[in-house]
Computed example of a mutant assay.
Amino acid sequence: MGNSSVKAQAATEVTEAATNEGLKKGIAEFYDESSGVWESVWGDHMHHGFYEPGTTASLSDHRTAQIRMIEEALSFAGVSDDPIKKPKTIVDVGCGIGGSSRYLAKKYGAQCQGITLSPVQAQRAQALAAAEDALQQPFPDGQFDLVWSMESGEHMPEKAKFVSELARVAAPGATLIIVTWCHRNLSPSEDSLKPDEINLLNKICNAYYLPAWCSAADYVNIAKSLSLENIKTADWSENVAPFWPAVIRSAFTWQGFTSLLQSGWKTIKGALVMPLMIEGYKKNLIKFAIITCRKPE
């Protein structure tokens, strides 16, 4: 009996490892294909823009909105501009092609290191010589004053391990900022999402190489379990609502259309499910959340 349970556990661990490796490979290949398209149309900030609710986003103001997203996140977390208190060492987990990394480094005069699964992105950003895994970061404990993760948490298969790694590399007193896609918080009477909600998320997962989704409340509980302090969260779904329609419109420009055709099937498949992201937001299923906290001194 004991031996069979050990074998079952080992088999499960092997399956999970294989699944995680498949996810990492898919994520890397997806961004290897799509990063050039994104940069040519939208620029070097590979994340949502922050807009006034109810407005219409356009290509002409996307960069301003993406910069505003960074600034709103820093403000929400209470990151200081004071020369004495401002961060001096920063890690950008899921750095893309380094847009946020360069912005943060310039803003604070700080040393900023980026980490990404995509070798193409790593080379483009010149962030690291080799791609690394955000669930096992190549940094010692307590190295960074600001730990920044802009739209990378949704790609992490083990959310608790992901946040634990962010906390591990954070210096005492450091601020952690996670901006990520989540599903809605479950009500006290719910054990899980509804079947049609799970079906919609699965379609998005298949296109974007995402593991199972979690809620902002799940992130808060993980932060509490790690004894992190000053935990705050907010739902910015309304502020990013104009983003996906603008991305879809950009795909129908001549530059966007030709770039998509040249990029590869993974990028095209990702473009085809963009309307599902809009549907998820409209149904209040998909949430764009920020979670910030502080490592105890």
Rank of each mutant, 00 (worst) to 15 (best):
M1C: 06
N3S: 14
S4W: 02
E13I: 03
V14M: 05
T15N: 11
E16P: 00
A18L: 06
T19E: 12
I27T: 09
F30Q: 06
Y31I: 00
D32H: 03
W38E: 13
W38L: 11
W38D: 13
E39R: 15
E39T: 15
V41K: 11
V41S: 11
W42G: 08
G43Y: 11
M46A: 11
M46E: 07
H47N: 09
H47A: 09
Y51L: 08
E52A: 14
T55G: 10
T55V: 12
T56A: 14
Q66I: 04
I67T: 14
R68N: 10
A73F: 04
G78Q: 05
V79D: 00
I84C: 03
K86A: 07
I90H: 05
V93I: 12
C95Y: 00
Y103A: 05
A105H: 03
Q111M: 15
V120F: 13
V120N: 09
A122L: 09
Q123Y: 09
L128C: 14
L128V: 13
A129M: 11
A130H: 14
E132N: 12
A134M: 08
Q136V: 05
Q137W: 01
F139N: 03
G142L: 04
G142S: 13
Q143H: 12
Q143K: 15
F144Q: 06
S149P: 05
M150P: 08
E154N: 11
H155G: 04
K159V: 06
K159R: 14
F162R: 02
E165R: 03
A167H: 01
A167I: 01
V169T: 04
A170R: 01
G173N: 04
T175V: 07
L176C: 04
T180A: 10
T180F: 00
R184K: 15
R184F: 09
P188W: 00
S189K: 15
D191Y: 10
D191L: 10
S192M: 08
K194C: 10
K194V: 02
E197Q: 06
I198A: 08
N199Y: 09
N202R: 11
N202A: 07
N202F: 07
I204G: 01
C205K: 14
Y208P: 00
Y209Q: 08
L210W: 06
C214A: 15
C214H: 13
A217V: 03
V220W: 07
N221G: 10
A223T: 06
S227C: 13
L228T: 05
L228V: 07
D235K: 01
S237Y: 05
N239K: 04
P242N: 08
V247S: 05
F252V: 12
F252E: 15
F257T: 15
T258N: 15
S259V: 05
L261G: 13
S263K: 06
W265D: 15
K266P: 01
L272A: 14
M274W: 12
M274T: 15
E279G: 02
Y281T: 12
Y281I: 13
L285R: 01
A289W: 00
I291A: 06
C293S: 11
C293R: 01
R294Y: 00
R294F: 02
E297M: 03
